[in-house]
Each structure stands twice: as C-alpha cells, then as structure tokens.
C-alpha cells in the first residue's frame, strides 16, 4: 500500500488544534512512518499539492485567502476533515459575526483597543481582506469527517486518523464529538 498523503491546513484558527496534533507524542513517530506529510504549517511547502489523501483543516473561513485556499484544498484532496470547533462551527473566529460589518470590527480592534501604533492594517496582496461573515468549513465546501473540540484533543485526532491509515472510515461518537 502506498503511504497515505496527509496534509494539514491552517485557516482562521488559533493554531491550538495543530498544537494538539503535536500532543500525539510518540504516536507521531508511528504516524510519520506511515504517511507522507505533503503540506502543513509544520512543513515548508508553498503550494498545496494535487492528490492528497487526507487533509485536516483547522480554522474557520474568515478572509479571502482562507476562501481561495479551502476551495483548492477541496479540489485536490480525497478526504477532508473539519478539524476543531473553529472549522466545525466558526467558534471563536466567528464571534465577530453578530457585529455584521467588518469595518467596525477592525476599528474596535486596531484603533479603539490598541495601545500603540493604532492603525488598521492595509497591505493589498499581503494582508487578506476579511469576509463579511466568518463561516464554518462545511458552509463553503463539502466536508467528509467532523472532528470537533476546542482544541480537538490528541485522543480524538488519533481516533480519526488511525482507521484512515488502513483505509477505513472512522466513526466518532459520544464524548468524542462534544463541542468545546
């Protein structure tokens, strides 16, 4: 059997779910022996490759970059896992949604609440434009597996990945799907 091509993607999230991934401790060594990590914030690869078997997507879709990347990720991956509450529900990233317009959010964060250098970041091509509303991943593209938790703890990540290594579909139930 060919090695599983695994990718991990970081959209609008705090990277806590990726930290949790590192919490897999020594199982990471077992995992590493059975996969090729083809794209990840933990690896220095610039372009999301074709033919990814499994991808863990952390974070909600919050800005133009996220939106572009998640569509590419969907096109180029077989199994897409919504990884953590931000991806699954919008979670903390979507806290701004009830405020509706992005202008007042930026104003509050970068002008009113700032201590120094109060200015709204504006670098077209570098700082991506915020979307009006933050969306969970499944509101934009099709999701195959949901892995909630804030952060998703290492046991849950393992419960999702282990069956996939032998090309089986994980079935998460009970406490493994609790939000929060």
């Amino acid at each position: 059997m060919n090695k599983l091509k695994l990718a991990t993607v970081w959209l609008g999230g705090c990277s806590g779910c990726h930290m949790s991934f590192l919490d897999l401790d020594e199982w990471l060594l077992d995992l590493a022996a059975q996969i090729d990590l083809v794209y990840s914030p933990l690896a220095d690869i610039k372009e999301y490759p074709e033919g990814v078997d499994v991808v863990l997507v952390e974070g909600a879709v919050a800005n133009e970059d996220n939106l572009e990347l998640i569509k590419k990720v969907r096109d180029r991956s077989n199994i897409l896992i919504s990884f953590g509450d931000c991806a699954v529900t919008g979670n903390v990233t979507a806290l701004r949604n009830p405020l509706r317009d992005t202008e007042s959010v930026l104003q509050r964060c970068y002008l009113e609440a700032a201590d120094i250098q109060n200015q709204i970041p504006h670098q077209p091509g570098i700082v991506p434009t915020l979307l009006e509303q933050v969306q969970p991943v499944h509101a934009i593209v099709n999701v195959d597996i949901y892995l909630p938790g804030c952060p998703t703890d290492a046991d849950r990540i393992r419960a999702a990945l282990e069956p996939l290594l032998t090309r089986e579909t994980p079935n998460l139930t009970g406490e493994q799907i609790r939000f929060g």
């Binding site: 529900t89 499944h138 999701v143």
Partner: peptide, 10 residues
C-alpha cells in the same frame, strides 16, 4: 450532532 447542517443565524 457532530456539526450543525443549518445556517447559523448569528
């Protein structure tokens, strides 16, 4: 319920 399939109202 592993996700909410309805659109969030916020």
């Amino acid at each position: 319920m592993n996700h909410v399939s309805l659109a969030y109202q916020f």
